[in-house]
Amino acid sequence: MGRRIVVSGGGTGIGLATAESFAADGDRVVILGRRAEVLRAAADKVNAAHGADLVTWTSADLSDPGQTRRAVEFIAADGPVDVVVTNAGGNVAPGNDGTLEGIADQFQRNFTANVLTAVLLTEGLLPHLTRPGGRIVHLSSVASLRGPGSYGGTKAHLHVYTYDLAKRLGAEGVTVNAVAPGYVQDTEFFGERGTPEFIAQQIGQTLTGQPGHPAEIAAAIRYLASPEGAYVTGQVLHINGGAQFGR
């Protein structure tokens, strides 16, 4: 029987591609997110593709300690966890009204969506993580190097958390890394901001002239989570086509 994998934000985009990648290897995957209907559809899609009930799901707002605790209890009821991928989040507050109150709200909302969702899930699952051999992979962003500040700063915070966890858990045989993608198409990340002009600008910042794809990010996550990745820890892997500041 394969390993047990947990992927937050697993209903769409990079999270779904990651769940699909692990399921293709016969691993059992639990996907998490806030939208039950999206998670159900994602699980059904992957399970139908592989002819097995490899993917289960539970909905939770992972910035809320109580909901995260319930999600952890749901996961732990089936035994230990081998891999945790924290993918939930996004630039949930791309703008503000210019007031100090609006700026504070913008920064707080992005911190809640990107830092707390990763930290609470990870800390909740630590007692259930396989030792040795456990793997933790956080999803960062090229924005951690170049902003925008309210979002990019939260992703940079995950780098510090990654380094701290790697030091805490290294002696126990657990690795902790982060993956920082650049522009990746076929995700919900940019929403209405993803106009053709905006997308062309993002792709134009790369050296390859090509966008990233969810499956490419999933492949990097799968490597870091693999037995072959045992000697890689405390690292941030930038995957952005050589975009400025991310080379």
Rank of each mutant, 00 (worst) to 15 (best):
A200H: 01
G191T: 08
Y231A: 12
Q205T: 15
A218H: 02
G246R: 04
G241E: 08
Q210T: 13
Q185D: 13
G194W: 07
I199M: 04
G173V: 07
L237N: 07
P211R: 05
E188A: 12
I221S: 01
P214W: 09
T175G: 00
H238A: 14
G246D: 15
V179T: 00
P211Y: 10
P227R: 06
L237W: 11
I199F: 00
G173C: 08
E192C: 05
E228I: 08
L169H: 01
G170P: 05
S226G: 15
G191A: 09
A200F: 03
V179A: 01
L207A: 11
F245T: 14
P227L: 08
I217W: 13
G229N: 06
G246K: 02
G209C: 03
P227M: 08
G241Q: 06
F190Q: 13
V232D: 04
A171I: 06
T208V: 14
G209K: 00
Q202E: 15
A200Y: 04
I203P: 00
G209H: 02
A178R: 00
Q205R: 15
E192R: 11
V174R: 04
T187F: 02
A220D: 09
S226I: 15
A243D: 13
E228K: 13
A243L: 13
L169R: 00
E197P: 04
R222W: 12
Q235D: 10
Q244N: 08
V232P: 00
A243F: 08
R222Q: 15
G234T: 08
V232I: 10
H213S: 08
A171V: 11
V184P: 01
Y231L: 07
R247D: 14
T195S: 09
G241R: 03
H238T: 13
G194A: 14
T208I: 14
L237C: 10
G170K: 05
G242A: 15
A218Q: 04
T233R: 01
L237A: 12
Q202N: 06
G212P: 03
P227Q: 10
S226V: 15
L169M: 01
P196D: 02
A200R: 11
G242F: 13
P181S: 12
T195W: 06
I221F: 02
T208R: 06
E188T: 14
L237P: 08
